[in-house]
Structure formats: C-alpha cells, structure tokens
C-alpha cells in the first residue's frame, strides 16, 4: 500500500496537476479571505467557508479523476491486479494520496487563522471544526470520485460524473424543500451533506455527522474495491 501511496502522490507532482490544484484552491480561498475578512477587518470566517465549499466541489473531481481511469487507459491496472497486493490496499493507497492533496489545500485556513490571531483573536474552535468538517465531507466526496473513476477509462467522464454528484449533493436540500413531501424531507435530512457540514461551520462537533461522513467514505471505498477487482473474480 505504501508503494501505491508513494507513487500516486508523486504522480500529482510529476505533472503540473498537483501544483495547479493547490494553487487554484489557495488563490480562491485567499480571495474570499481578503473579501470577507481582511477588507472588513473581521475575524469571522463563515462567509469564507461558505464560498470555499463550492471550490471544493470543483477541486475534488479534478483530484480524483485520474486515480483509476489512468490505470485502465495505460494498462497498469494489469500490473496492480497481478501483484501480490490486495485490491483493498491498492484502493486505500489511492484514497490516501487524494486525501493528502486535499488536506494540503485545507491547510490554508489554518494560515488564515494565524493571520487573524496576529491582529486579534481567532475563533479556533470554529476554524478547526470547519476544517475537520471540510476534511470529512471531502473524504466522502473523494471516495465517491474514486468509485466513479474506477467505472471508466475516460478521465473526463470521471471528472464530470463526480462534479455532477457533487452538485446534486449541493442542491439536494433545496430540491427537497421544493418537493414539499414529508418522506422526501426526512430521507434528505438523513443523507444531507450540506446540513451536516453546516453544523461544523457553527463549531458544533456532532459525532453523528462524523460517523455519517466516515460511513459514506467506507461504503464508497468498498464499492471501488468491488468495481476495480470485478474482472478478477471467478
């Protein structure tokens, strides 16, 4: 697994893709920080987080699009699947590499907190809780992105598919309100990403939300394992 992790992480930085993803994320995060905090002399980062959420929905598909599609296209899936490493470890190695890139992106918020701290007092519980929420929610969407990537040879389809899922999760709550149906509202209430993430932005650490995102992550990593290894099963 360490071999896969090392290779995948390296590959993000052997091409411009890793640098580009992180640069774009930092660029927009900093613009929002400037707009909503520095220009108002405010230490309240809630608007920064709210807007950054949309950037996350764009960035994650780009991080995950090549994770399995590239292997299918290059034929290196044969190398991985004929090696004495289990499918689970291969999937987990790729998941970890994507998470590391994503977490590097999220670290910018810690920098923002430190800047605020320099001038006044930062609300560290809110900042760190939100970063945790972003990490957990991102982990769930990354696992969905990995799964979609494992279904296709085309990185474009993988990217667009994950984008689509991300946006659906974003507007799911709004659609549920429009539906005006008690059952739909209940179901959406259970599976909602936005509501659960919002709790973190208020500094609320709810174990149920943590468990939910971790469960989605595990579920889709399991799906990815099954999908990647489907041809190898008798």
């Amino acid at each position: 697994m360490a071999a896969v992790l090392k290779r995948e992480l390296g590959s993000y930085f052997r091409s411009p893709i890793g640098y580009t993803i992180i640069a774009i994320f930092y660029f927009f995060a900093n613009i929002f920080f400037n707009m909503y905090c520095l220009s108002y002399n405010s230490g309240n980062m809630s608007s920064v987080f709210k807007n950054t959420f949309l950037i996350v929905l764009f960035i994650i598909p780009i991080i995950t699009m090549k994770t399995f599609s590239e292997d299918k296209k290059l034929g290196t899936d044969k190398l991985l699947l004929t090696s004495p490493v289990s499918t689970g470890r291969i999937v987990f190695g790729k998941y970890l590499s994507a998470m590391i890139i994503y977490v590097i992106c999220l670290l910018i918020f810690v920098v923002h907190g430190l800047i605020i701290e320099y001038f006044s007092t930062a609300q560290w519980s809110v900042i760190l809780c939100t970063v945790l929420g972003l990490a957990l929610m991102g982990s769930a969407i990354i696992s969905i992105g990995l799964f979609i990537s494992s279904l296709t040879e085309s990185q474009v389809i993988a990217c667009v598919g994950t984008l689509g899922v991300g946006f659906f999760l974003y507007i799911m709550d709004v659609l549920a309100n429009l539906a005006n149906n008690a059952i739909v509202s209940y179901v959406v209430g259970v599976f909602t990403f936005i509501q659960r993430f919002s709790n973190f932005t208020l500094g609320i650490f709810n174990p149920a939300d943590v468990l939910y995102f971790l469960s989605v992550t595990c579920l889709f990593l399991w799906f990815t394992m099954k999908s990647f290894g489907k041809n190898s099963r008798s």
Binding site: S15, L74, T76, K78
Partner: peptide, 8 residues
C-alpha cells in the same frame, strides 16, 4: 501492452 507508468 507493457504496463508502464509513463510519467516515471
């Protein structure tokens, strides 16, 4: 088709 990571 040799399974090679062409970026390495």
């Amino acid at each position: 088709i040799p399974p090679l990571y062409t970026d390495m």
